[in-house]
Design a protein around this nucleic acid. Structure first.
Lengths: 207, 207
DNA sequence: TAAAATTCACCCTTTTTGAGGGATTGAATT
DNA sequence: AATTCAATCCCTCAAAAAGGGTGAATTTTA
């Protein structure tokens, strides 16, 4: 088994060093290099290609969210872990959306850090259940939808880019019926085009 | 503080009863009623309106996934928890997508069950880090996209239902350029319409 | 330097869209 | 019993959009 190559992007020197010591003390991981900001890390990421990047969310210059996006662009196989003081914040959620697969709390102890990294390489995502809830709620549909179930069916197909004709074929109704539903959807959502309907539907989690 | 009202939908009588005993032994929860299948539960759900529904995934008749969907329709405020033997499966993931907010393993002990329910009422989602990974990977984009960044920009707008003209306006390019990009997208994705492009893009997490 | 990405133009035909109308049936609620 | 709502279907019309083909200039990047 090869040790997993890790880089650390963290502006606080003490933290950077304590993480390094802890990780280098393990038998599964080693720290390849550390960076005080995202810019310096991004300059080398393509050559270094680490297995794991630990990214602080609050960095001078480019913030952690943007850093994660760039890392995933330049080195897609690198798994990003958020390092944060705030256990449960929207910021962590943004980081996960940007491409991170989990996060580590700044004041975590040796065991917590190593076990989080362990979970990671075993294909898991270390995160609190609060964050997990935020994540899954993102693809739960809104139970207070103003639309009828048939209208929701139609809207889903609209969101897949289907035309009136295609929708009518998939739902075994006439094209005119599909158009009727769509007109009613427009009235209920207060929009007047497919694209507006899709935007509103996604924003309000109607589909 | 009122105790949280729970219903259990589980076909195995022994499990149903042991869950009931465990939960009724806690000071924060009580079992209002139990059901051996989804159909019977759904007949009463609108009147009972439990705070929490514990739903087995493998039920005779209607399965747990469908049951969860129906529960969320009829009683949106009821939080569904999956009860399953398989800790990490696509089935659990499907249940979460259907509207569940977490899951409990069938052979969990008293403490695990109560702490999972506790996490739930505190706004968390009890789940393993393996499941968490599956969940977040659902909104990570594919780093091996065949599309250029500009093409991806265009595709995102297509997925919002935008027309050639709207796309050109939003990206400050001419309509013909937008068409060019779209034609190239069609070739790269091997499709020949907007709807096909959207389907493929979503399936492959290109957007 | 060569390849890829980004930009734009003009040809063409067919389909779709959105805005107006209106109508019927059946189920659920009051 | 009355009424509302969902779901189904039909019509017209003009404007917009879509999709296919072909070619080419410019910039960026590997």
């Amino acid at each position: 088994m090869f040790k997993k190559k890790i880089i650390i992007i963290e502006d606080q020197e003490d933290l950077r060093e304590s993480f390094e010591v802890i990780i280098n003390g393990s038998d599964k991981f080693f720290v390849q290099s550390t960076y005080p900001n995202a810019e310096k890390a991004l300059r080398e990421i393509s050559k270094v290609r680490p297995d794991i990047a630990m990214v602080d969310l609050e960095l001078p210059g480019m913030n952690g969210i943007e850093a994660i996006k760039h890392i995933k662009e330049k080195s897609p196989k690198t798994e990003c872990v958020i390092v944060t003081v705030y256990e449960d914040s929207d910021l962590v959620f943004e980081g996960l959306k940007a491409g991170a697969v989990g996060y580590i709390i700044k004041n975590a102890n040796y065991l917590e850090i190593i076990s989080a990294l362990d979970e990671l390489v075993r294909g898991g995502s270390p995160m609190s259940s609060q964050i997990a809830r935020m994540v899954i709620q993102n693809f739960h549909i809104n139970p207070n939808s103003p639309l009828s179930s048939r209208e929701t069916d139609v809207l889903k197909l609209i969101a897949e880019g289907k035309s009136y004709t295609q929708i009518s074929e998939e739902l075994f109704i006439s094209k005119e019926t599909a158009r009727s539903h769509i007109k009613n959807i427009y009235v209920k959502l207060n929009v007047n085009s497919k694209s507006e309907a899709i935007s509103k539907a996604r924003k309000d989690h109607l589909i």
